[in-house]
């Protein structure tokens, strides 16, 4: 019955990542491999966090505990990817058809970040999407009608955030910019803990700060990747 709702939410959440994939990743086999590898590493972090959650029985109901450790695991694995990519860079350079991937190392950061983002978005939303295909919508026993849209919008921001974070994070380790590393981990924690407000139906209280952080992080990533206000102006003026 509510297939329209299902497709609407899927497009909201994954429309942008899909466009990114099609237009920037799909034409280079190396980038696809990197994307999948990054997704795999995110899965490993999920495995570890769930094992921790499963092992510590008394804290199972305390979501905040799980969230904090999950964020830390994800950042650890982001670092592991970073180490692996950096150590295999020369080999990559040798086999890559399109050498831009190694010449501009932000591309690698961007690809692995998108891989992180897509898989985490999928895991966040697939269960909700599956429940959406039935005939009903939220609201019979509490919950709001806009729950599904909110989830989709939230997921979109998470996907974008992961992409930005990876770009900042990789660059920060290259340049030993500890402030940026701290910003990535801190904003990740902040955004994740914000989502706990959703349990009380405070959707605006979580979404608005979430998108503020997304925009700030985006701007930072843009700067890190070599963008300036001048280049942005020129881009807009189509020069």
């Amino acid at each position: 019955m509510t297939l329209p709702e299902f497709f609407g939410c899927t497009l909201i959440a994954f429309g942008t990542p899909f466009a990114l994939f099609v237009l920037t990743i799909a034409n280079d086999s190396m980038r696809i491999i990197m994307l999948i590898a990054a997704a795999f590493f995110w899965l490993l972090s999920l495995l570890l966090s769930s094992m921790l959650w499963f092992a510590i029985v008394p804290l199972r109901d305390v979501l905040a505990f799980g969230v904090v450790f999950s964020v830390l695991f994800q950042e650890c694995f982001r670092y592991i990817i970073y180490r692996i990519l950096r150590s295999t860079e020369q080999a990559l350079h040798a086999v890559a058809e399109d050498t831009r991937i190694t010449e501009n190392k932000h591309i690698l950061a961007y690809v692995s970040g998108l891989g992180f983002g897509i898989i985490s978005g999928l895991f966040a939303l697939v269960n909700v999407l599956a429940d959406m295909t039935g005939p009903g919508t939220m609201g019979l026993k509490g919950g709001s009608e806009i729950f599904f849209v909110t989830s989709a919008v939230q997921v979109l921001s998470i996907v974008l955030l992961h992409t930005f974070w990876s770009v900042i994070f990789f660059n920060a380790f290259d340049t030993n910019n500890y402030l940026h590393i701290f910003y990535v981990v801190g904003s990740h924690l902040f955004v994740s803990l914000l989502t706990l407000l959703n349990a009380d139906g405070l959707y605006w209280a979580s979404l608005v700060p979430n998108y503020v952080v997304t925009i700030l992080t985006g701007v930072l990533a843009f700067k890190v990747a070599g963008g300036t206000s001048n280049s942005f102006k020129r881009f807009l003026m189509c020069r």
């Binding site: 932000h106 660059n171 990747a225 070599g226 963008g227 300036t228 280049s231 881009f235």
Partner: peptide
């Protein structure tokens, strides 16, 4: 056009 500057870390 957008990312005009060569990335700072590229030299390394």
């Amino acid at each position: 056009v957008l990312f005009e500057d060569l990335p700072a870390s590229n030299a390394a």
